[in-house]
Design a protein around this nucleic acid. Structure first.
Length: 481
RNA sequence: GCUCGUAUAGUGUAGUGGCCCAUCAUGAAGGACUCUCAUUCCUUCGACCCGGGUUCAAAUCCCGGUACGAGCACCA
């Protein structure tokens, strides 16, 4: 039993979760619904979703929409995001929680905090408090009586205080080593008259709003979240929230972190930056194939399964990583190749009259590895073909057809030499079309001729010797090689 | 500045004291198959940040350094 331990093998899939014994795990993915989901969000969905699936647990989709001023939510995102999650996972989230529906729960916990003396209403300005934080000294508001805190809390709720006048803080310890943890703010006021919440049912209803660390912590507890997988930029959040959990007597969930991911070809896109570029017309919309949004990837023919495999392969390390798009494309190719019918697209077409023994038609396989996909019938009523200009300088063999000699004379049908093989279309069985290349800088449109076919829009094909492309209303959008 | 974190081939990743002159994928190069510059298959290339220490034994533990990243918001 001890002998012959196996040669080291790479672990398959995601690392094991700690603390999973005898309980149903509950995970959550919590974006701010302030726009469509991006490539980076996909990681959160895929990793949380995969763990939930592996352990037959629950995946909660939670909208952390508690900021109406700095990062105000977008109404359409509430419908869009669940659809994007479902597309990516192939199943919907088990439960959707909207923070703005649950303000009263957060108030209850804020009041409990005040009543039990581990929270207080602080009337220092942000600036003034920063000085206390830096000098590790208590602010005067810290020692107020419970009654006085309750009174101030009510003045927050009824709007006697204005945004900036008062916040509720969690009492931690002003001498804590980590400055980020010192009496951190839990709830603040927002002017929802000027900046109403976009959801009509919420609108200007509340003046006091929880901040992420408080809202998220309380909600995780209320929903029974067992495992949190989040960016390592939120490590201090974990520490802040753990302090709050101790006050409440709760046990903090198991937490895993990941680092930042950059894609070589995409630098840094932020939601706000993308929004601006779309508004000024640089991009067609959120679904522009050049954009690192879920929608953009969909437009570009990236399969949900490829995205899942891609993220699982990257795993959940805390390293900041930078990955090439080729890695994602490689996953995508594996999924689409068997089902992608082959077609010829001729860029910069050069017409050649063919002479000699021209048949009425030839049949070419739809897919070289799958005979059952049938044949494409190419007709020669006009006795002419198109080849790419770049291919017109030497003697070649027309793929699946015959050798092409000087002056357009057809040569041997059998392959008799090693001359290079090129793709081509017949004039009869082809039509004008466009190859669309989504380059980072600009969309490139290359006109040419596509082999006639009746594939519906959305079909993923392989343009021989060019790459995989998806059929759109405007032509063939090149996905990747 | 204070606090926290991470460092394995070009890019990712496995590995928690001996199976490791280090796993797998991707990439690059070459080859086989193929009437595609595709797919599939094979081969090759290529890495434990640096310096100490602990130990019979360290990629794995400790200390120091360096690099990179993050937090210190009444944003998420």
């Amino acid at each position: 039993m001890l002998e012959g331990r196996q040669k080291q093998e790479k672990r398959e899939g995601l690392p094991d979760l700690k603390n999973v014994q005898d309980k149903k795990i509950v995970l959550r993915f919590a974006p701010n619904p302030n726009g469509p989901l991006s490539f980076g969000h996909a990681r959160g969905i895929v990793i949380n979703g995969t763990y939930a699936k592996e352990h037959a647990g629950t995946l909660i989709l939670r909208f952390d929409d508690t900021d109406t001023t700095v990062k105000p939510p977008t109404l359409s995102a509430y419908d869009l995001i669940p659809e994007e999650v479902e597309w990516l996972l192939g199943r919907p989230a088990d439960r959707i929680v909207i923070a703005s529906n649950r303000i009263s729960q957060y108030y209850e916990h804020a009041e409990k905090m005040l009543n039990e003396g581990f929270g207080y209403v602080c009337k220092c300005s942000a600036d003034a408090f920063r000085k206390f934080r830096e000098s590790k000294t208590n602010c005067p508001c810290r020692d107020k009586s419970i009654e006085q805190n309750q009174e101030d809390w009510n003045k927050m709720l009824d709007g006697t205080y204005k945004p900036g006048d008062a916040v509720v803080r969690v009492k931690t310890d002003m001498t804590l080593k980590n400055p980020a943890l010192r009496d951190w703010p839990a709830l603040r006021m927002q002017d929802t008259e000027i900046n109403p919440h976009p959801r009509p049912s919420i609108g200007s209803k509340y003046k006091v709003w929880p901040l992420l660390d408080f809202q998220s912590a309380v909600e995780d507890y209320l929903q029974g979240v067992t495992h949190i997988i989040r960016g390592k930029d939120l490590m201090d959040s974990t520490r802040k929230q753990t302090l709050l959990y101790e006050h409440f007597g709760w046990t903090y969930p198991e937490t895993i972190y990941w680092g930042r991911v950059k894609v070589h070809e995409w630098g840094g896109f932020s939601t706000s930056k993308m929004r601006a570029s779309i508004e000024n017309g640089e991009y067609q919309g959120w679904d522009d194939p050049r954009l690192p949004t879920i929608q953009g990837l969909q437009t570009r023919g990236i399969q949900a399964e490829a995205l899942r495999n891609f993220w699982v392969e990257l795993g959940v390390t805390q390293k900041d990583i930078s990955v090439p798009l080729a890695s994602l494309f490689s996953h995508n190719t594996k999924i689409i190749d068997d089902d992608a019918p082959r077609l010829s697209f001729i860029r910069n077409p050069v017409e050649i009259q063919i002479k000699g023994d021209v048949p009425s038609h030839v049949n070419i396989p739809v897919h070289p590895n799958h005979e059952d996909q049938g044949v494409r019938r190419i007709s020669f009523d006009q006795s002419s073909i198109f080849i790419e200009q770049d291919d017109s300088v030497e003697t070649y063999r027309l793929k699946e057809f015959a050798d092409l000699e000087e002056n357009g004379v057809l040569g041997s049908v059998e392959r008799t030499d090693k001359r290079p093989i090129i793709h081509w279309v017949s004039s009869t069985t082809s039509e004008e079309s466009t190859l669309i290349i989504p380059d980072q800088e600009e969309m490139k449109f290359i006109s040419g001729r596509i082999e006639t076919n009746n594939y519906p829009i959305g079909t993923i094909v392989q343009l021989e010797r060019i790459g995989y492309a998806i059929l759109t209303a405007k032509g063939y959008l090149l996905m990747h090689e």
